[in-house]
């Protein structure tokens, strides 16, 4: 039966993915880059929770990421918060801001929703530029990682990497649970046919507000985690382009798949960090000097990635892979089994 083999294959690939992440620092991945990748993966997953369920693309998520980071960093610097409390602070401020921004935006749809979230995020950006606590243009620097639960010394990069992995994993499992909860079912139904859901007595706005708040909370957590792991928060974290990044990661990885945002984050953060080296390599290989300057045009490269993604593999990496596997497993007969959530 196709669905059982498919499920097994999926379990297997998740296992492989997890093993790869566990082994990565031993296979030469610089732990701090690993931490950065994991934080963006969490950010992208949180962003996707909203986009995947509601079809709403928020340009406000940078505000949750940035302020989550600022609050955690400030808490550590000013009040010597422990890392776990700093993380909770990020999560809490994300939830609070999500509730407010969601309340103001969730009744709109499509581009109007996106514009309201953008406007509110710009407001937050402006506040962050003005407030002395954020360090303005300099950002918040030298945030110390501290000791997690009083026993795990996060100053050690390896410890920090695995702590980040553990938190990311818990968040990922949480999202997987949301997808397979009664609430998740309601969200799918509401997305399928909102008018019908209303006619069955549902208030779609309340469900959307909850999913928006959950998404914002996890984004705040990602921001706090990033602030602790990397030791700094800057204005670029609250800039709306960062929200665009999450969108790009989600689309490259595959919209509508649980693992897509993770894969998208891995690909894009790695690309962003290695683009300079890649350019130098290409220029040596081809003799075209222009490639050596690639490192300075990250935005352009991202733009090209985006265009290529939209034009050639619209379902994203994981979406295409999933479609391919399904095709291989079902040669001709029509598929009509139960809905498989990614």
């Amino acid at each position: 039966m196709m669905s059982r083999r498919y499920a097994n294959l999926r379990r297997l690939s998740y296992g492989v993915l997890l093993l790869a992440m566990l082994a990565a620092p031993w296979a030469g991945l610089y732990p701090v880059l690993g931490i950065k990748i994991l934080c963006y993966a969490l950010f992208a997953c949180a962003f996707h929770l909203l986009l995947g369920y509601t079809g709403l693309a928020s340009l406000g998520h940078a505000a949750f990421l940035g302020v989550g980071g600022y609050m955690a960093g400030y808490g550590i610097k000013a009040w010597s918060l422990s890392p776990e409390l700093a993380l909770l602070t990020g999560l809490g401020i994300g939830a609070l801001m999500g509730l407010v921004m969601g309340y103001l935006s969730i009744r709109r749809s499509g581009i109007y929703f996106t514009m309201i979230t953008l406007a509110l995020a710009q407001l937050v950006y402006f506040l962050c530029v003005q407030m002395p606590q954020t360090g303005g243009e300099d950002g918040l620097q030298g945030i110390s990682r501290g000791i997690l639960f009083g026993i795990i010394d996060l100053q050690n990069d390896m410890n920090m990497y695995y702590a980040t992995l553990a938190i990311g994993l818990i968040a990922f499992l949480f999202i997987a649970r949301v997808v397979r909860s009664p609430f998740g079912q309601s969200m799918i139904a509401i997305k399928d046919n909102q008018a019908r859901a209303i006619s069955l007595g549902y208030h779609p706005d309340r469900y959307k507000l909850l999913v928006f708040t959950l998404s914002a909370s996890l984004t705040g957590l990602a921001g706090a985690l990033k602030a602790i792991g990397l030791g700094f928060v800057t204005l670029s974290d609250v800039h709306w382009m960062t929200s665009g990044h999450a969108l790009l990661m989600t689309l490259v990885g595959g919209l509508g798949t649980l693992s897509g945002p993770v894969v998208g984050a891995v690909v894009l953060v790695a690309l962003e960090n290695k683009i300079g080296q890649l350019g130098v390599m290409l220029s040596q290989l081809t003799g075209i000097n222009w490639f050596a300057t690639l490192g300075e045009s990250v935005i352009m490269v991202m733009g090209i990635v985006f265009v290529v993604c939209v034009l050639t593999f619209r379902r994203g990496i994981m979406g295409e892979l999933d479609a391919f596997v399904r095709r291989v497993l079902t040669p001709t007969s029509t598929r009509s089994s139960k809905h498989d959530d990614e």
Binding site: R177, V178, R180, S181, P182, F183, G184, Q185, S186, I188, A189, D192, N193, R196, A197, L200, G201, Y202, R206, Y207, L210, L214, K338, H339
Partner: peptide, 29 residues
């Protein structure tokens, strides 16, 4: 109909609101 839900889930969706679990994002379906 809710196209990406199963036939059974379509009907359960109509029944579940009364049951009061529709907002339970932490419970298994």
């Amino acid at each position: 109909v809710f196209g990406s839900l199963s036939v059974l889930d379509n009907v359960r969706f109509a029944l579940q609101r009364e049951m009061g679990v529709s907002f339970f994002f932490w419970r298994s379906d």
